[in-house]
Design a binder for these strands. Structure first.
Lengths: 161, 161
DNA sequence: TAATTAAGTCAATATGGCTGACCTAAATAA
DNA sequence: TTATTTAGGTCAGCCATATTGACTTAATTA
């Protein structure tokens, strides 16, 4: 009977309940980014710098084009932020096999910052999901994944090859 | 034995897996806000306007101070956005019982826009969670809630009285 | 009456996006 | 081989959203 109920009409949240989810996303995402924001501020960096550092750390030798695909900003926007990171020696650039391309890597200084920023978010997530079951955590990840648009799901898969 | 395993050592995600969660949050939040962003653009509004409209819609007669508490921005930042919304007749202002305070409300025009924006996000969430069990959805909400800082949990509770 | 509170305003600054126009060098297709 | 496409860069200007600091007004509360 319990299964039947679920088969015939999936669990339904009314508008009021769905709005709570909207708010949970807003509040949780803001607090999720606030930790790194404080560290970045001291370096006169912003969240844009964090994203670049994160994804260069994620995929060593990532090209400008790939990075633009992940971040979905214009190259002019990326350029300003990336040049700062290169000038301040958080990132080094080398030439690819295809000599038109450039490969980005974190320097030791960059790795140190990446680690500092990511550790905050990793610990935050770990602290939270520690209290939940494997099923809850898998459900959480799956729901977030399904909220991503099709094209960006591909991007997510690609950076996790 | 299965329970014992869970009791002794809770389900553990290694750094690589937690990093996937970081990315899922980044991608999903970006796509979550992209729908409304397109509509707002036509009106020469941004996400800041959306937030104001959302929370005024959520709590009719909200005061400036309360709104500042929810949004956590400076009153100078709020002022610019709010004045635009008032000038363009999406929001009306009245005086509170305490005559120092102001009470904000959506006009019919404001309600229409609020509905248009929220419907996109409500449908998106509903479309996703439709595929999941009640347990998964509750887990999802609880995990998001636990990611919120203590003080902001209070704010979340307050706006949902 | 004095202090506090809610709200507003002026000015300057920083960040992070955008568009448009234009350029170079390298790879690839005709 | 020439033409086209691709990867990347750059200059200029614009807009949105946030900040800090200083100051004001009016109303409430101590």
């Amino acid at each position: 009977m319990a299964d039947l109920n679920n088969l015939l009409s999936p669990f339904f949240l009314n508008d009021k309940e769905v709005r709570k989810v909207i708010e949970l996303l807003f509040f949780s995402y803001r607090d999720f980014t606030s930790g790194p924001d404080k560290i970045l501020e001291k370096l006169n960096f912003g969240r844009a710098h964090h994203r670049v550092i994160y994804f260069v750390g994620k995929k060593n030798h990532i090209t400008i084009k790939e990075l633009l695909g992940v971040l979905q900003i214009t190259k002019q926007s990326l350029s300003r932020v990336l040049n700062q990171l290169v000038n301040e020696k958080f990132i080094i650039v080398s030439t690819g096999f295809d000599k038109r391309t450039k490969k980005l890597s974190l320097t030791e200084k960059g790795k140190k910052l990446e680690n500092e920023l990511s550790t905050i978010q990793i610990n935050k997530i770990r602290g939270v999901i520690n209290e939940f079951s494997e099923e809850d955590i898998n459900g959480f990840k799956q729901i977030l994944y399904e909220m991503i648009e099709v094209d960006n799901k591909k991007t997510f898969q690609e950076i996790n090859d």
